[in-house]
Each structure stands twice: as C-alpha cells, then as structure tokens.
Amino acid sequence: MALDNETVHIIARLARLNIDDSELEKYGSELSNILNLVEQMEAVDTSGVEPMTHPFDATLRMRADEISEGNQREKFQAIAPSSENGLYLVPKVID
C-alpha cells in the first residue's frame, strides 16, 4: 500500500503536525514501507480471536472515592509556557 500526499496531509493535520511539501514524498514512502510491513497481518485468519488489549487480561481495579489531592497550582504553573491569574493562556479559542 502506498500513501498518497493527500492522505499524509490529512493524517498530519489530525496529529497536529506540519509536514512540509518537500517532505511529503519522503514521509509518504516511509509510512508506506511501514504499512507494507504491517500488511503481513492480513494473511492471518483471526476470526473468533478476542483482541488482547492488556497482557494477561487484567481487570480494572477501582479506588475509593476520596479526595487525596490538594492545590499544587503554583508548582505546576511554574513550568507553564504561559499563565496568568492561575489560568493557562492559549491563543484565542473561537467556537
């Protein structure tokens, strides 16, 4: 399978990555190579096989409903790229 430039573009946008036009071909062919590797999977009959999402099929452990976390805003926002009045700042969001 080969990925065309349009598809590479769409995936990049979905992943919020910018792929320059000059790199499109390179990415396209590298991704296609990986997909070719992956295509070996197709030959295998997996009907009736349950997908294995976790090694050893563990089940969810749940915690008691208790408040165990306090305010750490100052510490956390010390490493924020942009914050003010306790808020993280980002370019204007328009709905």
């Binding site: 409903d65 208790e66 408040i67 976390e69 305010n71 956390f76 009045n85």
Partner: peptide, 20 residues
C-alpha cells in the same frame, strides 16, 4: 467527592486550577 480518575475534589467554584 473526587474526580473520576484522580483524587482531586470536584467541588464547584474553586479558584482556577486549584483542583487540578
């Protein structure tokens, strides 16, 4: 009392990001 995946309070009206 607490969030679905963390131990932070879900009380309404706290100062911004103090329950994060």
């Amino acid at each position: 009392q607490s969030k679905i995946f963390s131990g932070s309070s879900i009380a309404y009206g706290a100062e911004p990001n103090t329950q994060a």
